[in-house]
Design a protein around this nucleic acid. Sequence first.
DNA 1: AAGTCGTGGCA
DNA 2: TTGCCAAGACT
Length: 233
Amino acid sequence: MASATWSQTFTMAKKRTAYRVWLSEVMLQQTQVQTVIPYYLRFLTKFPNVTALANASLDDVLHAWAGLGYYSRARNLHKTAILIRDKFHGKFPTSLESMIALPGIGRSTASAILAFCDQQTLPILDGNVKRVLSRLHAISTVPQKNEKELWLLAQHYTPEKTDIIDYTQAIMDLGAMICTRHSPKCTECPVAQECLAYTRNETALYPVKAVKKSLPIKKIFLMVLINKKMKFS
DNA sequence: AAGTCGTGGCA
DNA sequence: TTGCCAAGACT
């Protein structure tokens, strides 16, 4: 198979520990699965648990991260590992608030860790879930304005009693494999009949693109000047 | 609350 | 080729 799902790669490692889920979620922030996989496997070999990561030097961590981009993620990863070692007796906290308080862990990442590792019924809202929900409900507001609505919808669909792990993985995989950004495979989608974007034949319209602020005329003028200067220097 | 952070895939 | 943007979080 040319491209494995993340869940397939992940389950190659034996168990979803908080450390492994945390590491994977951070690496996957704004970074595609195929890029992350080799880094993730190498990282786990080099730093098998949170204590090993905390005991490593920042330089070693940054070196293992080199090429992944967004290096503040690596710095925060190391910071958090040290916090877990020194302030949390080597164990991750199990409340959403204390999880979010850790460097580099926002609401979605925190919820993902707690859902996967502690079966807590918490909604996640990453790029995949946002795309799925945007199409399912044909959300026409711009991304800058629809954050609250998307979180409410994410919460609405999150199962209260059972299957939180399966659900969380499923909706992410749906976004990654079927409800893709370009040419989604709607014929394979289990919720196509309930999807407003699909039934209206408008999947390409969602999620609505961000509106870019137009550049001030003054700034454009400056850029033109700089551009001319570069050509003659 | 808008800007920033990195790299690679894709049209 | 260029621009857009991806399993976000921080300031």
